[in-house]
């Protein structure tokens, strides 16, 4: 499936390569908000995140004549922002990197409207506790997959991980989450007995 948003991103990306300021401006505005939402979860300091976003774009412009071959402008930008924020934190004397880099600020809470009425309070609490106690890395993958709508391939690109590891971590998280939920109903038994072979994209 070709994604029209991605095609437009590439048009803009190539425009930047041709020194087109208008294309560059549009590219920034298209991605500013999603970069901010991602950045603020890596580090909660708004000013630092905003500075980092600006620096990411400035460096794209400055290197526009030798931009790297990329699979997706969006994941390239998110990945650059991640690298930039972690670098800034490492530079800062007041923060200890091992503390900072090991966080991903996400809180999960149920939207009861969207969940079917059969779920009781206990289940809700169980799920929330489970999700909120996930390791930061897993939270980050969840954020990128389900909020930023990135593919496993793109997440691997952003987080500098192996694609298969991203897939495995996500699969594992979902498997454990499913166990927290318990069965859906009677007809469910069948599908639980029938465990499918591990699927690789």
């Amino acid at each position: 499936m070709t994604d029209p948003a991605k095609t437009e991103d590439f048009l803009l990306w190539n425009g930047v390569g041709d020194s087109d300021e208008a294309a560059f401006n549009t590219l920034m505005r298209r991605h500013y908000k999603s970069l901010f939402r991602y950045g603020i979860r890596i580090h909660a300091d708004e000013d630092l995140v905003r500075d980092a976003i600006q620096e990411v774009f400035i460096s794209v412009w400055e290197r526009r004549h030798k931009l790297p071959e990329i699979d997706s402008p969006r994941s390239y930008l998110l990945g650059s922002l991640r690298k930039r924020i972690l670098y800034e934190l490492r530079q800062s004397r007041w923060e200890r990197l091992d503390e900072m880099a090991d966080q991903f600020h996400v809180d999960f809470s149920f939207d009861h409207v969207l969940i079917s009425r059969e779920e009781d309070l206990l289940t809700r609490q169980k799920i929330e506790t489970f999700l909120n106690s996930l390791p930061p890395r897993q939270k980050e993958i969840i954020h990128l997959r389900f909020y930023q709508n990135l593919s496993c391939e793109e997440i691997a690109d952003v987080m500098k991980m192996n694609r298969q590891s991203v897939y495995n971590l996500l699969h594992e998280t979902l498997r454990r989450l499913r166990r927290q939920w318990g069965p859906v109903g009677v007809y469910l038994l069948l599908s639980q007995l029938h465990e499918s072979p591990f699927h690789v994209f």
């Binding site: 939402r37 996400v106 809470s109 939207d111 969940i115």
Partner: peptide, 22 residues
């Protein structure tokens, strides 16, 4: 149906509480 409902429920679990918005 059972599997689809379970998968749907898994996805709907990931509701982030609103953070600082740009």
């Amino acid at each position: 149906h059972g599997r689809v409902e379970e998968a749907r429920r898994l996805l709907l679990s990931f509701r982030e509480t609103a953070g600082t918005e740009p």
